[in-house]
């Protein structure tokens, strides 16, 4: 079946997001590697996509009519894998092999993993394959939509703007970009490292239909994505305001947690905080 057998409520999607954060924490803790900050900022966005928005069938990862998803900010792989497992692309036990030798779960997304539509990890590259997929849908006469999640730091890469230009030139209204706008990159706050503002104006200037929302408010994300579905004749972008490290007090808004694994004390505290949240 393409559709979820029963549509999850907003509260249930939030529960999924909370579970994704806990799984991600466990993965990063176990592997002592990975990117917790930019994974946690994505929890609600991925939960909304995989448990409501995307037309997918985990039992048929290669279903030709499925919606496509590209995680351009490939370093959020831990929560991406947690999402794919939660949705049934592979057993949750596989998450314990993350970053291990011979695992199906590489440090950054790889097309050989069930459910991964495009390899990514070198930043700025994901929107371009998304355009190829959206153009391909048009050529094949298919109705599917393409969703690409970008980091706000990675849009410093010039290729993103090459792609932004092309997507609007081709009038790809089956292409949706979602920017995880958490305001922090590896080295520092984006505003200090290399400002990307004014973000809405930049996308508008490139011919995109722009929508903003609270990237941690499930109802708001769902509403925004539904609204974007109605736009015709040009690509759409959802600028989702998020908090890097969301859900763990000492990780929130702290650039140090871009790519850091917690020690035991930090892990236990984070686990406690993620368990009680909501």
């Amino acid at each position: 079946m393409a559709e979820m057998e029963e549509m999850l409520t907003v509260a249930e999607i939030q529960e999924v997001a909370d579970r994704l954060r806990r799984r991600t924490l466990d993965m990063v803790w176990r592997a002592q590697a990975g990117h917790p900050g930019g994974s946690f900022s994505l929890a609600e966005i991925l939960a909304c996509l995989y448990f409501r928005v995307l037309r997918i069938d985990p039992s048929r990862p290669d279903w030709p009519d499925r919606d496509r998803f590209v995680l351009s900010k490939g370093h959020a792989a831990p929560i991406y894998y947690a999402t794919l497992a939660e949705r049934g692309y592979f057993p949750p036990e596989a998450l314990d092999t993350y970053d291990e030798l011979n695992s199906i779960l590489q440090g950054h997304p790889d097309m050989h993993t069930p459910g991964v539509d495009m390899s990514s990890g070198s930043l700025g590259q994901g929107l371009s394959p998304g355009i190829g997929m959206a153009l391909g849908a048009r050529l094949r006469g298919k109705e599917f939509r393409v969703y690409v999640v970008l980091g706000d730091g990675e849009i410093q890469e010039g290729q993103v703007w090459e792609a932004a230009m092309a997507a609007s030139a081709y009038r790809l209204d089956n292409l949706v970009a979602i920017v995880d706008w958490n305001k922090i990159q590896l080295s520092d706050f984006i505003e200090k490292a290399m400002p990307v503002d004014p973000l809405p104006d930049k996308w508008r200037a490139f011919g995109w239909h722009v929508r903003e929302c609270d990237g941690h408010d499930v109802a708001a994300i769902l509403h925004a994505l539904e609204e974007l579905r109605q736009v015709r004749g040009r690509p759409t972008v959802l600028l989702a305001h998020t908090v890097k490290g969301k859900g763990v007090s000492f990780m929130e808004n702290n650039p140090a947690w871009h790519a850091k694994a917690p020690n035991e004390q930090e892990y236990l505290q984070a686990r406690t905080e993620l368990a009680v949240r909501r």
Binding site: S128, G132, E162, A166
Partner: peptide, 26 residues
Amino acid sequence: PERFFQVGIAEQNMIGMAAGLSTLGF
């Protein structure tokens, strides 16, 4: 013409677009 894509002076985007198209069997 329907199978030709002018991407402009943007080689990086061109390769990514080609990769995306290839996933659909093109």
